[in-house]
Design a protein around this nucleic acid. Structure first.
Lengths: 157, 157
DNA sequence: CCCATGTCGTTGACGTGTAAACAACTGTGA
DNA sequence: TCACAGTTGTTTACACGTCAACGACATGGG
């Protein structure tokens, strides 16, 4: 094995900083979210993905692929959210095996009530701490990495 | 409740990009790590934290605080790593309640063998994709966020 | 039409994280 | 010195994710 190219000081700072930011930022934002709305971060992700889907509904497999979750995990999580009345399952018309996940009235109301506080939290702990140039740089960095890891994916809304 | 300041397009791109990068990058790097060395990402984090500690040892609570893990989680994880011979527990001399976690010979060897591949993976999926300016920008962004979330913390090695 | 093969979503078994309770111990103030 | 509130690390009960197996169904070739 050839001697590896170790990280220099700047690279190390970026990598460790990223890892630590990831740890603390995620913990803080999801803690805020749970305290203010009773939703866990995964809950919010599911509701958010459904809200931005046509007809507020999506096939389980599609949803799982998009979220990078296993079908098993999503199926279980949907089961719990279903019991809380946030989503519902419907059969699929074109594929009798299929399951369609639908956002309920209550689910819609819940995420709409949670969104302002969540956005405020994201601003408080990330966005409002950065200059416009840094925001732009972060976006570009993410796009670069994602172009490598998931070519052909679209992030725009 | 006042109308929230929603995210504009650049801010949205940065936040969603960050979240998606986080998801894919972490999955890829830890998959590489596990395939090449048999260590999980948490395993690596523990070994890494011990390696950079004085005497390759640290009190359980200190380690847990630093890693942002619960003591319970760390205690369980250490138990499993102990069974694999990667770390060992010692009593604490100055506090009979205390437990000191020590890196074993095998643990040291294991992380030393894993490190080159891990660094290569980090390079491949992140560092080598970015310009020096982007590396620097990422480091600064992380420092800014961390100064807000964990004031007084030191990231330098 | 029928069978082989593959996909969809669910489930059981298992590994692991969390929250709360716990015993053992520390250190401080009366 | 001694009661007692706090800390340390472990454990128990539970929540949740993964992997593999499964039944139900879809799809394409003979």
């Amino acid at each position: 094995m050839p001697e590896p190219r170790w990280l220099d000081d700047d690279e190390f700072r970026a990598w460790i900083g990223y890892r630590r930011m990831r740890l603390l930022l995620d913990a803080q934002v999801s803690q805020d979210l749970t305290r203010e709305s009773g939703l866990s971060a995964p809950d919010y992700d599911v509701l958010s993905a459904l809200t931005s889907s046509e007809g507020h509904r999506r096939r389980l497999t599609e949803l799982a692929d998009r979220m990078l979750w296993s079908k098993s995990r999503l199926s279980r999580h949907i089961g719990r959210m279903e019991q809380r009345g946030l989503v519902a399952r419907e059969g699929c018309e074109t594929d009798a095996r299929g399951s369609v996940i639908v956002l309920t009235e209550q689910g819609l109301r819940t995420i709409q009530e949670a969104a302002p506080g969540h956005v405020a939290s994201v601003r408080r702990h990330l966005i409002d701490l950065l200059s416009p140039e840094q925001i732009d740089a972060l976006g570009t960095i993410a796009e670069t990495v994602l172009a490598h890891l998931a070519p052909g994916e679209d992030l725009r809304r």
